[in-house]
């Protein structure tokens, strides 16, 4: 296997007429947790969706373990071993918690068992028969993460998993990300909250106006604080 798991080169994406990504370049190595940081509307979600095949109009190159995915349908991309936890969480109202959890088909061995997912997120076990969208925001986020841990996908795309959540739940999600990294999963994480990102990530890419403008290793975050504040406008 090559040294990079995900190799994104010159990625362009459009929603209808609007050109959103203008040549995004970055890499993710196996076992890494890498974040995409950037202001609102920078194109982080669009990058995630483009990797997953959820943006119809995209060009450039996205290689996963050496396989070019830019022309593939999203279900084919999923079978290569990528899974997404979308920004809006995407919990299904007409499915209960267990059905939501079991929905994504297992595409490869190596995923977590339901028991292991329940161990990470005990709430999901307690609320197994509740309607998916009756859960609290935090529980829905756990469900959205939990269901892609089952599938055996090796690269997980987590789009702002901590958005709008209480600090204890943010901590729980942080522990989860570190735990799945331990298990050998690779994570591409979109975060607004770089203080949180710093507790889980190996490297950070800064996205602005549809391009990657910088890369900062987590170890060098402190030295680059001023620059980062500048980029993110915080």
């Amino acid at each position: 296997m090559s040294d990079t798991m995900l190799e994104v080169r010159g990625l362009n994406a459009w929603y209808g007429e609007s050109h959103i990504l203008h040549g995004v370049d970055f890499d993710v190595k196996p076992g890494e947790v890498v974040t995409l940081l950037g202001r609102n509307g920078a194109g982080k979600t669009t990058t995630m969706k483009s990797i997953m095949g959820l943006v119809g109009n995209r060009t450039g190159s996205v290689k996963f373990n050496g396989t070019e995915t830019i022309g593939l349908r999203s279900d084919r991309i999923a079978h290569l071993g990528i899974a997404i936890c979308p920004e809006e969480r995407g919990i299904f109202a007409s499915l209960n918690v267990t059905e939501n959890l079991m929905l994504p088909p297992v595409i490869a061995p190596g995923g977590l068992s339901v028991a292991e997912i329940h161990e990470l997120f005990p709430n999901l076990k307690e609320r197994a028969t509740s309607q998916g969208t009756k859960l609290s925001g935090g529980e829905q986020q756990m469900l959205a993460i939990g269901r892609i841990l089952r599938t055996g996908a090796k690269l997980l795309l987590l789009d702002e998993p901590t958005e709008g959540l209480a600090p204890v739940i943010v901590q729980q999600i942080g522990r989860t990300i570190r735990a799945i990294k331990e298990r050998g999963f690779t994570v591409l994480l979109v975060e607004q909250n770089f203080r949180f990102a710093a507790t889980v990530a190996d490297r950070h890419y800064v996205v602005d106006h549809g391009v990657v403008i910088d890369m900062i290793p987590n170890a060098e975050l402190e030295q680059n604080m001023d620059k980062l504040h500048d980029y993110l406008g915080v």
Binding site: H79, G90, E99, L103, P104
Partner: peptide, 24 residues
């Protein structure tokens, strides 16, 4: 049934179900 759940989910959000690897 699981196939029924998949169908209900696809009725709600087909694109997301497909991105999980289902041949929608």
């Amino acid at each position: 049934t699981p196939i029924g759940a998949t169908l209900r989910a696809a009725t709600e959000n087909a694109a997301l179900v497909q991105s999980f690897g289902v041949n929608v």
